[in-house]
Amino acid sequence: MMKTDKGMSIIVKTVTRISVWLIILYGIYIIVHGHLTPGGGFGGGVVIALAFLNVMLAYGKEFTEKWLNFQLLHDIESSSVTVFLVVGILGISLGGAFLANFLSKGDLFELYSAGVIPVFNILIGIKVGISLFLVVWLLAGINPEEEDE
């Protein structure tokens, strides 16, 4: 595990290649069904962050930096907060109050229901997933031996 720069054995890499997409799918399921089943944006976001972390532990930091565009991830993560605020301000004009639920409520237990709650769930999921992974990625860049000098 500590040789994160070179990656782990071929067994771990093969299992990761298959399982990481299932983990990401599960995270997306938890986020999208946040208003119907237990979970929501925060839990699903942590699942997605753990999936990316799985890739980073198995394949190493250098491969992950080639695989993912970290500048783009940082931009998405920052803009999701802005979109959250924009949806909240839209509530002033369309719903009468900040962060008001201005979309139609729909039928209970349907996927397209509950107004803006699924939108907020998706935004929080993006935000939590990417930002937790970015923090771990930045902390993994520190070499403990260099710190002591």
Partner: peptide
């Protein structure tokens, strides 16, 4: 709210300000 999951309804509708604060904390960190 029209949401079947009640916790979601509270943290994203009744207490949406709290969630906004939470996101801001993550962003700042």
């Amino acid at each position: 709210t029209g949401a079947a999951n009640f916790v979601s309804a509270i943290i994203l509708d009744y207490r949406a300000y709290d969630t906004l604060g939470e996101i801001t904390i993550l962003f700042t960190s």
